[in-house]
Design a protein around this nucleic acid. Structure first.
Length: 874
RNA sequence: GGGCGGCUAGCUCAGUUGGUUAGAGCGCCACAUUGACAUUGUGGAGGUCACAAGUUCGAAUCUUGUGUCGCCCACCA
């Protein structure tokens, strides 16, 4: 593109797709193709998006942050891998397709049959996958597509089976008949974390099983009481002590016969209700625990269809739980057994996906035993202890740190994990049965008559081994040895417990190493009302809309700058628009540099020949900046790095140096301009890859910015003296501008300035003239007579001749105000300095600077006084 | 019930081990319109850092308590 053809405004949509195609074609997303020797590695595995639809802003944040990490590390000359993939998300996808199926065709999955249903799900998953991949590209994500994985593909299926077999062989996976969370609507088990509690109104009935029974109990679900086998009381409860250990046989209750043993259990709260708890071992996880402790019988009275079973007795058998409840309450009323009815708010357990009401019931399922002891490196450990140690030892660092507490809280309370699901979409459990035999393997067993378990695995089982399965495990691939453990896991804090814990659990056990060294948790992107964006709320903003309007770069910046890890952010269109303005600013800065310099080329450090104060200042500032932002990025402080870069780019480079460059033309200036532009583009590249790569073509059409080495001067040119002097010059110029502004002088109107005293301005009169709109600049030692308005900068007094523009009263007021604040400040400093203890304890630097400030404030005071006098005289 | 977090300018939020007179972006007010950029420039106003007590020479920052909003976990049967 010839110089003069650079458009005035940057239109993202004109460039982004082409740039992404160029990157992809270059092959550099794949670390095998990266140029140069690279000793260190940096690897991230993309948290696989669910193939349930499209990406939302939460994904956009994830992609933006991870791409910044990845591009930064790639430029830092590390062997950098970002591995993409998608998650079949068994229950979520299955539920979604079932919903669509029911809406459009009025059918259930059972109407279609396993094969046809799976076909439909796969079609849906494929479409969704393609959409997701396209959206990742639009965001500019530099993912190595050649390594893309899917939780349900052949390699991952192999890894899942291998993990299952290993855990089974080690006795960490077992099949057992236990009370699990059953979702009658979704017709599957679910784990504890897939439960969501809903507040509903309920009636708490207090009653006795029969007139003869000595203890009253309370329940919101009287229908389950036909399954009771015990009443639990607190061991110290005097009211019931005499009954402990007794069994009441053959109680006639709601049409069936029950027998109730009174047991003492510490978990019972004697102050709640009657202090006695009817124990229903088959339909409550808590009661099941009590039953286990006391060896109580289990009686299942609710079936998988959610209706009462035959065992519940003829009065309620076959009825829904709701009907059964009415029946039992009616029966209790007739028998006069109800003692109290009380309206309460009940937390109803429902399934996250289907919304069905959870019915705990005993079933034969597969579990991971988290407390089974085994040997590891000569120590006795459990899966639970390994998971705790990984973070406690510092092998894994969580950012922000405070989430470690939540991690431990959750791991400490970990219970055996039910991993089997009665779904069709997912990893089939690698267990085969023949009569009494059972076979576990990665391949089906030899011989006739084997039947594979019809259940599938919880989706988190396969994502739990995601870092290693994507890198080739169980094969000992070179990818696995090169990139595992991965450097960072970047994800939302909302799935810390769902996923992060599971990954640590599974991976530390299987590979005896952590899955990642750092966990970076981003916050949630909320809508303008502060609500969580979610599929179910249907308030998802498509990131593609933002990209279409303002560009991917602006979208990325708006999601990264001004937000901190672990904290939520509200999305506003104005913010995105603001960063679009900044991308355009960078474009125009570049446009100016490229059009004003003689020859566009790389400038080496050694070619710099700073001459003027401005040269020395901007280079010094820049060299401070490069250290700061590199440190910030290494420390995952993206927002701060971005803010500092923005400040330098706009407020220092554009607003000051570029303006000065216009009046100090020459090859020295050109070199500095090019030097800074090139490096700024490199620094901005991780944040805004598209616009920087587009501009970069003008500087170097041969090499992509994406694989440019991160610039960092070995010997920084930090010139504190130049910085101090330049700040003085800036302040002087601002002071003159201020005076002009206060008196409404048009920017083009030149004014005459007389400066009293020694000042940096003296050495840079042309800069002052150009940047402050000054015609004649005169330096003298005495205060001149005549009409002047004046302002004070440090110890320099400016007299700006502005005939007829002086507003005496306003000036007086302003000076008085200024005097007051200066006096207050001087007083406060004086007080502190008078304090002996302070002077002895405070650091020298602080005391010295306070002394200096105090002296300066006193000088300023005398100047203000003289000005006040002159204003009053005239 | 247990735990965690927020409360800083009109709005959205930074503020890294306590240290000069607390910051940014947006918004607002005034002025400016052909030479990189109006997706702009220049200048300005605006804050008892939720409240209270304490520690300290010094607190937005540390301690304790209070208020308020939010999140997570538990689930009282």
């Amino acid at each position: 593109m010839p110089k003069q053809d650079i458009p005035k405004a940057y239109e993202a949509r004109d460039y982004e797709d082409d740039i992404y195609a160029t990157w992809e074609k270059s092959g550099f997303f794949n670390p095998d193709n990266l140029p140069g020797e690279r000793k260190e590695t940096f690897s991230i595995v993309l948290p696989p998006p669910n193939v349930t639809g499209t990406l939302h802003m939460g994904h956009a944040v994830m992609l933006a942050i991870e791409d910044i990490m990845v591009r930064f590390n790639r430029m830092r000359w590390r062997k950098t891998l970002w591995l993409p993939g998608t998650d079949h998300a068994a229950i979520a996808t299955s539920t979604k397709v079932e919903t669509i199926l029911y809406k459009t065709e009025g059918k259930t999955r059972h109407d279609l049959g396993r094969e046809e249903f799976l076909h439909r799900v796969e079609k849906f998953a494929q479409d969704s996958h393609d959409t997701i991949v396209n959206q990742c590209r639009k965001m500019g994500a530099s993912l190595d597509w050649s390594r893309e994985a899917y939780t349900l593909d052949a390699a991952r299926n192999m890894a899942v089976n291998a993990a299952f077999k290993k855990m089974y062989d080690d006795g960490l996976i077992y099949r057992g008949y236990r009370v699990v969370n059953w979702d009658p609507l979704g017709q599957t088990t679910i784990s504890d974390i897939e439960i969501v509690y809903k507040e509903v109104e309920a009636t708490l009935y207090t009653f006795r099983y029969s007139k003869d029974f000595p203890i009253s109990i309370s329940s919101t679900r009287p229908e389950t009481k036909v399954g009771d086998t015990a009443v639990a009381v607190h061991p110290e409860d005097e009211r019931y002590k005499s009954f402990i250990g007794k069994t009441f046989e053959n109680i006639s209750f709601a049409g069936t016969m029950i027998s109730i043993k009174v047991v003492a259990d510490d978990s019972v709260d004697p102050t709640f209700g009657t202090g006695a708890l009817g124990v229903t071992p088959a339909h409550s996880l808590i009661d099941a625990d009590i039953a286990k402790r006391h060896g109580l019988a289990m009686k299942q009275v609710i079936g998988e269809d959610g209706n009462m079973t035959e065992a519940a007795g003829p009065l309620v058998a076959g009825k829904t739980t709701k009907q059964a409840r009415e029946t039992v309450v009616d029966w209790l009323r007739q028998e006069g057994l109800i003692e109290e009815e009380e309206k309460t708010i009940q937390n109803l357990a429902t399934a996250e996906r289907s919304g069905g009401v959870i019915e705990p019931m005993p079933m034969l399922q597969w579990f991971i035993d988290v407390t089974k002891e085994f040997e590891r490196d000569g120590k006795t450990v459990t899966i639970k202890s390994l998971t705790q140690t990984a973070v406690r030892s510092g092998a894994i660092k969580i950012i922000p740190e405070r989430f470690e507490k939540g991690y431990f809280q959750w791991v400490d309370n970990l219970r055996d994990w039910c991993i089997s699901r009665q779904l069709w979409y997912g990893h089939r459990i690698p267990a085969w049965y023949r009569h009494e035999e059972i076979f576990i393997g990665t391949q089906p067993p030899e011989g006739e008559g084997w039947q594979q378990d019809s259940d599938t695995l919880d989706t988190w089982f396969s994502t739990g081994i995601w870092t290693c399965s994507t890198l080739g495990w169980p094969e000992q691939t070179s990818d696995l040895s090169t990139y595992h453990p991965t450097s960072v896991l970047e994800t939302g804090y909302d799935i810390l417990t769902f996923w992060v814990v599971r990954m640590v659990m599974m991976t530390t056990y299987l590979l005896n190493e952590v899955p990642f060294k750092t966990v970076y948790l981003h916050g949630l992107v909320r809508d303008e009302l502060g609500r969580k964006m979610s599929k179910s709320l249907d308030n998802i903003i498509n990131p593609l809309d933002m990209i279409a309007s303002y560009g991917a770069d602006a979208t990325r910046l708006s999601l990264v700058i001004g937000s901190t890890p672990g904290n939520d952010t509200k999305l506003s269109v104005a913010k995105v628009a603001g960063y679009r303005n900044f991308t355009n600013k960078l474009w125009n800065i570049s446009r100016f540099v490229l059009m004003s310099v003689g020859e566009v080329r790389h400038i080496a450090e050694s070619e710099l020949q700073p001459q003027t104060l401005a040269d020395r200042w901007i280079l010094s500032q820049f060299h401070l900046l490069q250290r700061e932002i590199t440190d910030h990025l290494e420390a995952y402080e993206f927002s701060q790095a971005g803010e500092k870069l923005r400040d330098f780019t706009w407020n220092q480079f554009a607003d000051w140096y570029l303006e000065i460059a216009k009046i100090q033309k020459g090859s020295t200036t050109d070199h500095i301009l090019l030097y800074l532009l090139e490096r700024l583009l490199a620094y901005w590249h991780p944040f805004m890859p598209f616009v920087t790569e587009t501009i970069w073509k003008q500087i170097d059409p041969e090499q992509l910015l994406m694989v440019h080495e991160w610039p960092l001067s070995p010997e920084p040119l930090i010139d504190l003296h130049a910085q101090r002097l330049f700040v003085q010059l800036q302040e002087s110029i601002v002071a003159i501008r201020n005076i002009r502004s206060q008196h409404g002088v048009a920017p083009k109107q030149k004014i005459n300035v007389i400066v009293v005293g020694q000042t940096t301005m003296q050495e840079h009169p042309e800069v002052v003239r150009a940047l402050a709109g000054v015609e004649s600049l005169v330096f003298q030692n005495e205060i001149p007579s005549g009409e002047y308005t004046s302002s004070v900068v440090g110890e320099i007094q400016l007299f700006v001749s502005l005939e007829g523009l002086v507003d005496k009263e306003q000036e007086h007021l302003k000076l008085t105000k200024e005097r007051e604040s200066t006096w207050k400040y001087a007083q406060s400093l004086e007080q502190k300095l008078a304090n002996q203890e302070f002077v002895s304890k405070a650091p020298e630097q602080v005391v010295a600077s306070m002394r200096a400030n105090h002296a300066e404030a006193l000088k300023k005071l005398t100047l203000i006084d003289s000005q006040l006098n002159s204003v009053a005289r005239s």
